[in-house]
């Protein structure tokens, strides 16, 4: 199901907790699995549940609670744009309009070629540098404007 590298990473997370508390590693395990697979398919959740010795529905509870776990396939580039109050005051709406026009998709959608997914995010805690966009859960892009969005998207080709 997962590569040996991913499993080794999960095992390292499990080792941080007492043996009978393996399930404490569920969030890390989900992150590692998603990193490898791109998204969390039901089979992945079932695999992790067995691996961590917990009910599948309990894994699903965690995976469905947090925004950054994707339970549906996403494009190669997942863009999560913050639309909370600070970014809004700094003009994120115009940035979003520009991105949407350029990619031809709305929030929660993926481009037909499977390259881009656009998601609406909650505050990333870097309001001083807003508007903000998180790329594939790991890279934060700051100070977006309708003008620099083009270059920002070009850079992802």
């Amino acid at each position: 199901m997962l590569t040996n590298e991913s499993l080794a990473q999960i095992d390292r997370e499990i080792a941080k907790y007492p043996a009978e508390q393996k399930q404490s590693a569920v969030m890390s395990a989900l992150r590692i699995a998603q990193q490898e697979k791109g998204w969390l398919a039901p089979e992945t959740l079932e695999f992790l549940a067995t691996y961590l010795g917990m009910p599948t529905i309990a894994v699903y509870e965690v995976a469905s609670f947090y925004n950054m776990y994707d339970l549906k396939p996403v494009g190669a580039h997942k863009l999560t744009v913050c639309t909370n109050i600070s970014c809004q005051l700094q003009g994120v709406d115009a940035v979003v309009a520009k991105i949407q026009a350029k990619l031809g998709i709305g929030f929660g959608e993926t481009t037909a070629d499977g390259r881009f997914t656009l998601k609406e995010g909650e505050c990333f805690g870097a309001c001083g540098d807003g508007p903000l966009c998180l790329h594939n859960n790991h890279t934060l892009h700051t100070r977006l404007t309708p003008d620099n969005v083009d270059a920002f998207l070009e850079g992802m080709k």
Partner: peptide, 18 residues
């Protein structure tokens, strides 16, 4: 045997099986 759970968050929480 935990067959039912409460996935989702906030208003979107639902009791359901996997």
């Amino acid at each position: 045997q935990m067959e039912l759970g409460m996935p989702g968050r906030g208003e979107h929480v639902e009791v359901m099986p996997f």
